[in-house]
Design a protein around this nucleic acid. Structure first.
Length: 1104
RNA sequence: GGGCCAGUAGCUCAGCCGGUUAGAGCGCAGUCCUGAUAAGACUGAGGUCCCAAGUUCGAGUCUUGGCUGGCCCA
């Protein structure tokens, strides 16, 4: 016997009960073992989730997909690994630990002790990986939670060592000196990948500075910069040799050189006007001409070419600093220039900016002055130009972005501190070099963790030379990307990216296995074994620890060739190395090649696309291609971002972030999973309670209602599951039809999921649920209500049984095909409905995905006929509402035409259905020539007038002689007619329909429908009786009676209604559950109604 | 400045390979049903499919060029 179904359940509670049940029955294990020897595999390789905080609802989106696809392939019989991954190493973990400890800088960590700090990082990861595991379980994510991989594992780290050694053996690892974005707070450089995360619109104090030209009297190059602190390290100036420069003389006789076009150029005009990329409160920028005019006006004395200025010497703004006088630059020394006794001051000349890598001019007109200050130690382009022009570099900042020695009074001051900027400006003003300061809005890189501005520092970092990127691009081409444009996006990144910076001057992460020697050589270790072999010091302290700082730092090795003793570089690795290696580290690549071959390449990897093209997809593809020489995955499925209900980004600080735990318990995870699955993955998803409520009402509750309807009646009627679960073969056409629809839906879901289009799969299920609920169930309710139980096989009502059998099979099938999406209620439904079946599995999740034959022609005809019945009913109701005849009022006739051929064998079914739906006595199809409406055709003069001009008159005359009906027929058949040698199409006419007498006509693309609006007395009487029943039912409800309460009705009325009641007494009694209807003459009563101009007073009481 | 994606009803979004009069949900107005009942159904109003040109018998759909927004890269 089925368990009775609560028609209004608490879904989150139901989900939690199921979690307990699954746990108790070990269902997940049984699920994982389902296909263990099936011979077919599906390899999903998980992109690790950062185990640093509890999950947000956005994580649940991706995990819903991951679970969905794995469940689907489980149902298709594929063996899988079900391995989840946690991302453990990297700055983001350090940041949280620092926060917890109240640390402000990198130095605090060193003072605290690296070992203690690293251990806290590990603890944090262990803590939150467990939290995320539990949350994932709550989501219904069925993984092998005992077997999750952790990127901090020895295996993962040593696997990366192997990769780096391989890279080094092909000469791809190098130490580069470069100017890189740097966070003073974090004390580390930022990779190309990370810097993109932290771009922010800010208003900086930008300055116009006078650079005094040597050997000229009172002449200056005017220079503009947004980073005044870099002026301390100025080395050269750049112009564009092809631009025109104006020699401007001011009122005070000072002469300024600026690019001619720039003088009147309105900087950031568009941004200011549209207030896009503009910072509130920043005033409009002035033109250079305005600045000159404010100083009393200017005259342009001469126009010269940029090329004429090349070679001019100038005095730098900070030539008094010791650093500028150090030969070879400071603190990095260019030995060649040192030997030539070249210092910064000697470099102070104007150079040509030339072109960048893309072939664009480095110096352009527009913003600024057309003369650019360069500080090769403070900017990446500056550095490249410095190298090209053989210039020294001054790199003024230390790890914390403070000025270093030889920068005189600035020593120890922080470059991003606004006070420092003020001091510099003050100093420039005192030197009379400051021409103008302003606030300038622009997008500038910031530290993604602290929000602090980044600076650019000249430092040593380690890189992988990516000149072999074409190998990766080949892999990219061979992958099926969903969405398809992902391929192009990945190519774009691969084309534009620089070499991969893999080092980070931090503590918690992959220990780069690079040891350096006094002769400036380095050696890359590829495994723990190799390390042990080459170690000459520190092995004892290291042994037993993970390959992390600080333990690993203790080891010194002897170079196998030179015999020199080296120490490890203190850097840790880029965290995307950790995630990129998992195609090997998690698949026993180093120990069991057979296993690895079984599971590599992946069938599927999946992550959210913003970011991943340059992060995980990139590192996975790079490492996968390099090591395996294969394309490392067959499919990449990616999706957009979760936003709040109004489309805004969710932020903790803005209070619109939703926590997963709250969402799960308040909304329920089936609702969440359906919401996620039905979303077009390319589009940002809006998430919130009202959207979730809509999904619950639209999808989850209808399913539940169908299920509870079926089950509760099945209990009453003692319906039991069939001996074998196979598709029924009913004779009832509606049963037949819903099975056709269901099978089609099932096959569509399968196809869509194979194509990685889960949204389409979900939407096709929604469509089916709508048909099932709003047509099949609604139209068939009475078959379930008929009396007669099934318990003792005698006198079974076969039609009633067919309805049960059909709906049962539909529900079981539906629970299967929806189970990958909403694993909770589907299992609830399945388990309850199968609890006595001898063929049952312990869970719907142990079932296979249904397989059905394609629908045949007959099925299709049945589908067409049923759709026709629905549509004609709808048009019939529409006609009723146009002629203001309520559905309660029966009408005599409905006639329809169909453009689509309807199989005659289904005609009777259509008639029956329409009769019932529209409350009409007779329904008939009529042929093409039968007139359902009066039509009037006129010329559309507003269209034809301009086309025909004076021919119109004749045409109008001609038309009057033609048979309207014939004309319309011709137009419909051929789309055009020829009158007076003029070709006219249907658009050239206005066709109006008029109702024939006593009818209401309506049409759509496929059908014409006409209802008879004339009512005879017998119809009116029947209408009155139904009106009466309706009023009494409302009264019952208002009186608070139970649905099953029997009543006694007493009434007083006019003759008319009295007669109606007498005429329809048995029907009325049955409908309102009256045991007795008593007429009692009186002039007043509690409840008065007027029906058809006749009055009635009614009182009801419960009969005992 | 370059690339990608999008622009369809008041809102959120479907619309396949080009094919009659462009759809859904929500919201709004109204009606119905009362044995799925703190549900449910139906009907209606509401659209220059961003603009322009082109290809075509036919364009929301294809092409080109603009405009607007988002993302990515400089």
């Amino acid at each position: 016997m089925f368990k009775e179904v609560n028609s209004n359940p608490d879904f989150p509670k139901l989900e939690n009960n199921l979690l307990e049940k699954w746990d108790k029955n070990n269902t997940v294990k049984e699920y994982r073992d389902k296909n263990i020897d099936s011979g077919k595999t599906f390899s999903f390789i998980d992109g690790p989730i950062t185990a640093n905080n509890p999950m947000g609802v956005h994580h649940a989106w991706g995990r819903t997909y991951k679970d969905l696809f794995q469940r689907f392939y489980t149902m298709l019989g594929h063996e899988q690994r079900y391995q989840n991954g946690f991302d453990c190493q990297g700055l983001w973990v350090e940041v949280e630990v620092e926060k917890a400890l109240g640390f402000k800088s990198k130095k605090d960590i060193q003072d605290f002790g690296v070992e203690k700090f690293v251990n806290l990082c590990k603890e944090r990861v262990n803590k939150y990986s467990a939290v995320q595991r539990d949350q994932s379980i709550r989501l219904g994510y069925w993984m092998d939670w005992e077997d999750s991989y952790f990127t901090m594992s020895d295996e993962n780290n040593y696997s990366i060592w192997g990769f780096l050694k391989q890279m080094n053996e092909s000469g791809k690892i190098y130490k580069g000196t470069d100017v890189v974005p740097w966070s003073g707070r974090s004390g580390t450089s930022y990779s190309q990948m990370e810097i993109i995360e932290g771009r922010k619109l800010v208003a900086h104090k930008s300055v116009f500075i006078k650079f005094k030209l040597k050997n000229k009297n009172n002449e200056y190059a005017l220079v503009w910069t947004t980073t005044p602190w870099t002026l301390t390290s100025n080395v050269s100036l750049l112009v564009n040799k092809n631009l025109n420069y104006a020699k401007c003389k001011l009122k005070n006789d000072e002469i300024y050189y600026v690019a001619e076009k720039n003088i009147k150029y309105q900087r950031l005009e568009k941004e200011f006007k549209e207030k896009r990329e503009w910072v509130e409160g920043v005033p409009k920028l002035k033109t250079i001409a305005q600045l000159f005019n404010e100083r009393g006006g200017y005259t342009v004395e001469k126009i010269i070419k940029g090329s004429d200025m090349i070679g001019w010497e100038y005095e730098g703004p900070y030539d008094e600093f010791k650093a500028t006088k150090i030969d070879g630059g400071f603190p990095f020394t260019n030995e060649k220039l040192k030997d030539e006794k070249i210092n910064a001051i000697k470099c102070h000349k104007i150079y040509d900016g030339g072109k960048d890598q893309e072939g664009n001019d480095v110096v352009t007109s527009g913003e600024g002055t057309g003369i650019v200050h360069t500080a090769p130690g403070c900017g990446d382009i500056d550095y490249k130009i410095g190298q090209k022009n053989n210039l020294v570099a001054l790199a003024p900042l230390d790890e914390e972005a403070n000025f270093i020695e030889n920068f005189d009074w600035l020593k120890g001051k922080n470059a991003t501190d606004s006070k420092t900027i003020e001091l510099i400006l003050e100093d420039l003003k005192n030197k009379d070099l400051l021409f103008y300061t302003e606030l300038y809005p622009h997008i500038y890189p910031h530290c993604w963790r602290s929000g602090d501005e980044l600076v650019f520092r000249l430092v040593d970092e380690w890189y992988i030379n990516m000149d072999w990127r074409n190998d990766i691009k080949k892999s990219v081409d061979e992958i099926n990307w969903v969405p398809a444009w992902g391929k192009q996006r990945e190519h774009e990144w691969l084309n534009n990216m620089g070499d991969w910076m893999i080092s980070k001057k931090r503590f918690w992460g992959l220990a780069l296995p690079i040891w350096q020697f006094e002769d400036d050589s380095f050696y890359v270790i590829g495994s723990k074994e190799e390390l042990k072999k080459l170690a000459v010091e520190g092995w004892k302290e290291f042994e037993g620890n993970t390959p992390h700082r600080p333990w690993i730092d203790k080891i010194k090795i002897k170079h196998p060739k030179t015999g020199l003793i080296g120490t490890r570089v203190l850097d840790v690795g880029n965290p995307w190395l950790d995630a990129g290696i998992v195609g090997f580290s998690t698949l026993q690549y180093r120990t069991n090649k057979e296993y690895w071959n079984k599971w590599f390449p992946a069938d599927l990897i999946s992550e959210s696309f913003p970011g991943q093209f340059r992060n995980w997809f990139y590192s996975y593809l790079t490492m996968g291609t390099a090591i395996s020489k294969k394309t490392p995955t067959k499919n990449i499925f990616s999706y957009a971002l979760v936003r709040d209900e109004s489309g805004a980004e969710m932020h903790k600080s803005q209070g619109n972030a939703i926590w997963f735990d709250d969402a799960a318990e308040e909304i329920g995870v089936d609702v969440i999973r359906w919401l996620y699955t039905r979303q077009n993955p390319e589009i940002n998803l809006r998430f919130g309670p009202s959207i979730a409520n809509e999904i619950r009402r639209q999808v989850i509750i209808p399913i539940w209602n169908i299920y509870s309807f079926f089950t509760n009646y099945a209990i009453l009627d003692k319906f039991t599951p069939p001996q074998n679960l196979k598709s029924p073969n009913p004779t009832n056409l509606m049963d037949k039809w819903i099975l056709v629809e269901m099978k089609e839906t099932s096959e569509m879901v399968k196809e869509y999921l194979k194509l990685y289009q889960p949204d389409k799969a979900a939407l096709s299920v929604e469509n089916f649920i709508n048909l099932l609920s709003n047509w099949y169930i609604r139209r068939n309710r009475r078959r379930f209500w008929k009396s007669g139980k099934f318990e003792n096989n005698t006198k079974i009502d076969l039609d009633k049984y067919s309805a049960y059998e059909t709906l049962y099979f539909v529900l079981i099938t539906l629970s299967k095909i929806m189970s990958p999406i909403i694993p909770f209620i589907t299992d609830e439904i399945y388990c309850n409905l199968t609890n006595e079946a001898n063929w049952k599995k312990n869970s719907v999740h142990l079932e296979d995905f249904p397989a059905f034959n394609k629908k045949n022609k007959d099925d299709e005809q049945l589908q067409i006929a049923t759709r026709a019945a629905m549509r004609i009913s709808s048009l019939g109701r529409s006609a009723r509402s146009k002629s203001q005849i309520k559905v309660r009022q029966p009408i005599n006739n409905l006639l329809f035409k169909s453009k689509q051929q309807i199989d005659p064998k289904y005609l009777e079914m259509i008639k029956e259905q329409v009769k019932d739906e529209v409350n009409v006595k007779n329904v008939n199809i009529v042929n093409e020539n039968y007139k359902l409406s009066e039509t009037n055709i006129t010329l559309n003069k507003s269209v034809l007038g301009p086309k025909l001009g004076n021919k119109m008159g004749d045409l109008i005359k001609e038309l009057n002689n033609l048979d309207n009906d014939l004309l319309i027929k011709n137009l419909r058949e051929k789309d055009y007619v020829n009158i007076n040698n003029i070709e006219l199409s249907i658009e050239d006419f206005n066709i109006e329909h008029y109702n024939l007498e006593n009818t209401e006509f309506i049409e759509d693309n496929n059908y014409e429908v006409s209802i008879e609006t004339k009512l005879n007395p017998s119809l009116i009487d029947e209408g009155s009786s139904r009106e009466l029943i309706h009023n009494i039912q409302n009264l019952r409800k208002d009186s608070g009676f139970n649905i099953s309460d029997k009543i006694i009705m007493t009434y007083s009325s006019d003759e008319y209604l009295k007669n109606i009641i007498n005429k329809f007494e048995s029907h009325i009694s049955q409908e309102i559950l009256a045991t007795n209807i008593i007429f009692e003459k009186s002039e007043t009563g509690d409840n008065a109604f007027q029906i058809n101009n006749s009055n009635i007073f009614i009182s009801l009481k419960i009969s005992n």
